[in-house]
Every structure is written in structure tokens, then in C-alpha cells.
Amino acid sequence: MSNDLMLDTQIRDWVLVPLSVVMVLIGVLRHFVTKLLRSTQNPDIKAVKEGQVVLRARYLRGSANLIPAKSFRARRVYYNNEENGLLFVPKGQGNNMQAQMFTDPNMAMDMMKKNLSMIIPQTLTFAWVNFFFSGFVAAKIPFPLTQRFRSMLQNGIDLSSVDVSYVSSRSWYFLNLFGLRGLFSLILGEENATDDAQKMMEKQMTMQMGAFGADPAKTLGAEKDGLDLVQHEWALNRIEQRAEAVLKQLLDTPDFNF
């Protein structure tokens, strides 16, 4: 192309390289800061217990017919009675995520720490890049691109006449921000704290879990209703006939080997 821009080598030395180096260093720093701030979460005994109660009640519902009627009734009362049954949740005591968040300062603290370690460095570096390096054309990619990539690659330069394959310094910052993940997993090992995208995914996942599955009062209530509906019929009433059939078959097979 005739109107090729000549990029000064000074730009390479004082914009492109420093920007990348700083991004990497900040990523590494952030990894260690999050590691430092991360508090080991102890699993909440109550939550564990609720999960286990549900599991055990499910077992009971699933194979209720295998234990004698008396044992089944005793267990049902144990789970479902209205005074201190394991599955019985008094009205108004079902705590949801929101309430938990307000009452448990640790949770809010944890979230704040996470947010701090993510947002603050990002804002700072963005401000820094904007202040020192705004308006530079920092690099040129070796292949042509369509106009649609202009907003991605030439953020901060409002010139429509510049070829799209030139990269502005601010865009270079963004490319580094999102593109260094592979490098970080090489430097810091697989599970590093810098992985923003993954973190966001996780956050969304937990939000959804909270919305759908993790309301303990509801799960317990559903399990209780299920247990109430079980019609107990001892499966062993005719077991002897079945066992006889098994033994007869065994006797009929000539010289069986154990």
C-alpha cells in the first residue's frame, strides 16, 4: 500500500513493550495478592448436615420397601414430625441467600476482597494507559482486516482513514488484558487467580445455583412431602418364594461351580 504509516521504533521501545511487560507484572502481582487475601472457607456444618439429611431421606424413600414396616414408620416420624423432625422447617425460618449475606459479615467481606483484587488494578492500569499512552499507534498486524475490527483494534483513535491493521495503544492494552491468560497459566500454573473470564463464569454459576437449588428450606420441604406420600409395602413378603426359585435353579444346574 502506498500510504503506509511508518511506525517509529521508539514507539516499540517505549509503548508496546512496556505496556505488555506491565500487564504481565500486574497479573502476577494480582495472583499473589488474591492468594494472600483468600481466606480458607470452612464448610458450614449446618449446610453439610442439611445436604446429608436430604440424601438420607432420599435413600429411605427409594428403598423403603426393603425394611420392615415398623422400622419405616419409626423413621418417617423421626424425619417428619412437627416438633423436631429432621426435615421439618418451621415457617419463616427458611433462610435465603440474601438474608445470609446480610447476617454473615464474612460473606460480604469475601465478596469485597474478590472485587477489590479484580476491579482496582484494572481501573488503575486503564487510567494509567489512558494518561500516558493515549493516541499512539503502537503496532501493525501483518494481515488486512475488515472495517468491523476498527472498534476493536483502534480504540482511542478516531480516524477513519487509518488502515484497520494498525493497533492503537489502548486496544493493545485490551488485547493484553484478555489475551494473556495462556501466558499466565504457563507462568503461574493451571489454577491462577488472574483468570477473569473463568471467574465471571463461576460467579454466574453460583448465582444460578442460589436461585434454583440451594434454598435448603424448600429442598427439605419437598423431601418431607415425598416421604409423606410413600406407601410402605414390605418387599420381603414373597421373598422366600423368589429365593426358592433361585435355589431350585441352582440345584437343577448339573455340577455347578462356585
Binding site: L66, N237, I239, E240, R242, V246, L247, L250
Partner: peptide, 12 residues
């Protein structure tokens, strides 16, 4: 009955 159940489950 439970011995019988064992027999059935273990195939005798």
C-alpha cells in the same frame, strides 16, 4: 426373610 433376600441377591 432377610436370609432369603441374601440368597436371592447372592444367587444362592
Amino acid at each position: 426373610k432377610y436370609y432369603a433376600a441374601t440368597i436371592e441377591l447372592s444367587g444362592g
